[in-house]
Design a protein around this nucleic acid. Structure first.
Ligand SMILES: [Zn+2]
Ligand SMILES: [Zn+2]
Ligand SMILES: [Zn+2]
Ligand SMILES: [Zn+2]
Lengths: 138, 138
DNA sequence: GCATTATTGAGAATGATTGTCAATACCGAC
DNA sequence: GTCGGTATTGACAATCATTCTCAATAATGC
């Protein structure tokens, strides 16, 4: 093996757990800033940078999914959500943020096929569906 | 009609044409900053803010498509590309940026159906496929 | 308990994008 | 073609999300 062991051992901290917990409480996607506010409002003294670091870790380990808030009139912030481990996509309400996880083998195959047809390898994809949920259609 | 005319009449300017032209020259997606550099290197004295404004206009009028550069190790900048008018998606090489426009009625229907099944209306979607093109697979 | 060192938090720094505003250049009217 | 009202421009300041810095703190193994 040529793996120069230099990856710092991870530690469990109250802050990281607090972020994980706060994230699991929310139903839809949230920004790091919003989550930080929620935590502070609950008495936590966690720092903003720490929330960013914790979310980055969760996203890296697959415990959380992240998307870019592009919609309309946004500076494009990153939103996070605690999700199932298996590969899936999202149906998101642009009004209340309600999120439904979507898993469809057919589109996975489609995306894979499109890439292959054009000679692309190591393909990946980004697929999100937006709309206004029943509750918000009033 | 109740349309209080207050939309400022658009004007044609050299700068806007320069941006439009520079954008059409590039084959893949480019950032506003990169496009600004290209223009300056070609002798133009166009300002960065103007390039941003022109690109925003082009994107709004449907003359250009935009995506968020998330991929790997990017601060998430917005990329633009002169595209066909009709609705489509993209297959993008993460290495050289080569872009292929994709149009597939089946996924359009699929996305529409998923939204409807869950009681969502006014649905839209974001679908991009990434990979490494033949030339870059060496 | 103790030493080692990953982690934290406050604030500075960064990078992309947008706002400000006086100077400029379109464009339709004369 | 000239003129005038106003949309547009460009240099720079301002904003916003995110990352970096670094001394202080706390988790882990012994
Ligand atoms: Zn998810
Ligand atoms: Zn997928
Ligand atoms: Zn396109
Ligand atoms: Zn589509």
């Amino acid at each position: 093996m040529n793996q120069t062991m230099d990856v710092p051992a991870k530690r469990n901290t109250k802050q990281k757990d607090a972020v994980r917990h706060a994230l699991s409480e929310t139903t839809g996607f949230v920004s790091a800033q919003d989550l930080h506010l929620v935590l502070r409002n609950h008495g936590s003294t966690v720092g903003l940078a720490t929330v960013y670091r914790a979310l980055a870790d969760l996203a890296a380990s697959g415990e959380a999914d992240s998307i870019q808030a592009t919609s309309v009139a946004g500076t494009g912030e990153t939103l996070f959500r605690a999700c199932g481990q298996s590969h899936h996509h999202h149906l998101i309400c642009t009004e209340c943020g309600k999120t439904v996880e979507i898993a469809a083998a057919t589109v996975e195959k489609w995306a894979e096929a499109i890439a292959a047809e054009n000679g692309f390898t190591e393909s990946s994809h980004t697929i999100e569906i937006y709309g206004r949920c029943a509750s918000c259609t009033a």
